[in-house]
């Protein structure tokens, strides 16, 4: 989530910056601006920008004979040129993209759907549902990973028994242990955990739609489903955009769930290896593998660039085209 906060604030700064550029009247230098900004700038620099710069710097060095030597882009050449690294990198990136796709296709539409249902005035106990659906989000990854590992366990899990009750036992397989299912299963677990976030954001956006707009639509005879598609959905599109970018950043920074459920080797056969676990193994090492902070930093730099690229695409191509409505 660290990355997502950073990106959000970058995004805010960018948007704010362009608006404020216009007017520049001749006045004495306004010191109070500097003074008021200083705490935030200093703290942000110390705990975000410096470490980031440190990582970028580390990726350009190698440890040769116990001392750090500048090697330019050698680490990146290895990461992409040496099959021992590149195969793992592309595998992790591919898995990560799939992880993201599942979230976009499953988590966000379900979030929108839940929000639409919750905002329906006829629904009773909506506060209860809202809380219940949001609760997994505040659970620790360790709990979620462990609980789902148990639920899906072929030995003591409830999943095989429940499926047996409805006569679907034959469809049960040890999902987390099969190469072809493990990543999708984990993605869906993550969706289960985080579906509360898009739900809450969309729910808030839906509530902020003024009554007059809805009433006007009703006067024009637009009700029910077509009201959702024609009136509400266009109005919440900016929120959906923000959710997409949050999902993107969160997914490409993901690590915890895979690590707790599958371990650092992201088995079976690296089928659940994503950039986060790949980075972890490279940076800290694992079991007999000794950590290589320089290669780790190179991978971290690539993750940063991927996320930066994604966010830029969103900011400059999507965000600017989204229409905002002022009421």
């Amino acid at each position: 989530m660290r990355g997502s906060i950073a990106v959000e604030s970058i995004a805010k700064n960018l948007i704010g910056g362009t608006e404020r550029m216009a007017a520049a009247p001749k006045r004495p230098f306004r010191w109070h601006i500097v003074v008021f900004l200083a705490p935030a700038v200093l703290v942000y620099t110390a705990i975000m920008i410096l470490p980031l710069a440190g990582t970028l710097q580390l990726s350009l060095f190698r440890n040769i004979d116990q001392s750090q030597v500048f090697v330019g882009l050698e680490n990146f050449r290895r990461l992409f040129g040496d099959p021992n690294w590149s195969v793992n990198f592309w595998n992790a990136l591919r898995n990560n993209v799939w992880f993201f796709i599942i979230h976009m296709v499953v988590q966000n539409p379900i979030g929108v759907l839940l929000a639409a249902l919750l905002s329906s005035p006829r629904l009773r106990f909506s506060a209860f549902y809202r809380t219940a659906i949001f609760v997994p989000t505040i659970l620790s990854f360790v709990i979620v990973g462990f609980a789902w590992k148990l639920i899906l366990s072929p030995l003591w899990g409830v999943a095989p028994n429940l499926m047996d009750l409805v006569g679907l036992k034959s469809l049960f397989t040890p999902w987390l242990g099969k190469e072809q299912y493990a990543l999708t299963t984990l993605s869906l677990i993550s969706v289960w955990q985080f579906v509360g976030i898009p739900m809450m954001l969309i729910y808030a956006a839906l509530l902020s739609i003024p009554e007059e707009v809805i009433e006007a639509a009703e006067c024009d005879g637009i009700t029910g489903m077509s009201q959702f598609w024609k009136i509400k959905l266009p109005l919440i599109l900016p929120s959906i955009g923000i959710i997409s970018i949050l999902t993107f950043v969160g997914n490409f920074n993901a690590f915890d769930l895979i690590y707790t459920a599958q371990g650092a080797l992201a088995g079976p056969n690296y089928s659940t290896d994503i950039l986060g676990t790949f980075l972890y193994r490279a940076f800290f090492g694992f079991q007999l593998q000794v950590g290589d902070p320089n290669m780790g930093a190179a991978i971290a730099t690539m993750m940063f660039l991927i996320i930066l690229g994604g966010v830029c695409v969103y900011l400059f191509l999507v965000q600017t085209r989204l229409r905002r409505y002022q009421f």
Binding site: S153, P154, L155, W156, P160, P174, W175, G177, K178, P268
Partner: peptide
Amino acid sequence: LGDGFEAQTYPDSQNL
């Protein structure tokens, strides 16, 4: 090996 050994963890084996 037991049913679903692909998803059987080390503590599972010990308990079994």
